[in-house]
Amino acid sequence: MNTKRIFVNLVISLVVCLIALQASAQETYYVQSVKAKVHSAPSFKASVLGEASRGTRLNSIGRSGSWLKVSYYGKDGYVAAILVSVSPPMAKHTMIKAGDADFQQGVRRRASTYTSAAAARGLAADDRRRLSGEDRLDYDGLERVEKYTISDAELTKFMEGGKI
C-alpha cells in the first residue's frame, strides 16, 4: 500500500538524519585565563606549541584526563581543562555600584558594626535565641577586604619571581 511505503521512507530518513547529526558533534571552548599554553601532548613536560590568550576559541576534539585535546593551527594540541570553558569569557563583575540597592542596604546595616544574621532577617525572638553569636555579620571587615587592591605592576613583578 502506498501509505506504508511513505511510512517506511519516513522512518529511514529520520534514522539517517539522526545518525548524521550525532556524528557531527564537536564542542567549542574559550580560553578564560590570561593565557593558556597549548602543549603537544597531555603533559606539562611536552613541548609548547603556542600560547592562546583570553577569549581564544578552541575546537575540542577530545579529552584526556585534566587535558582537553584541541586543534591548534592545524595541529593537535592539549590545553589544561581548568583554563577553558564552553562560553566566552564574561566581563568582570563587581558588586559595588552607585545606587545598588544591596550595597545601600549594607551601608545601612553598618550602623552598628556587627549585625546579627537573625536581626538582618527580621526573625522572631525565638529564632534569634536559636542562633548564636557565631551568626554575626561583619560588613566593615568585608568592605576592607573588598577594597584591598594591588597594582598590576606589583603583581606582574611578583609573578615573575620578584620580591614583595
Binding site: S33, V34, R54, I82, L83, M90, A91, Y148, L155, F158
Partner: peptide, 28 residues
C-alpha cells in the same frame, strides 16, 4: 597589611589563571 598584601599577591597570581574571569577574587 604586609601579610594581607602577600596573601593577595599569591592569590592574584593564581587568579590570573582562573577559568572565571568574571569574578574579582578577594583574599584575606
Amino acid at each position: 597589611d604586609p601579610l594581607t598584601k602577600y596573601v593577595n599577591l599569591v592569590g592574584q597570581s593564581l587568579a590570573a589563571y582562573s577559568n572565571r574571569p568574571e569574578l574579582k577574587y578577594h583574599f584575606a
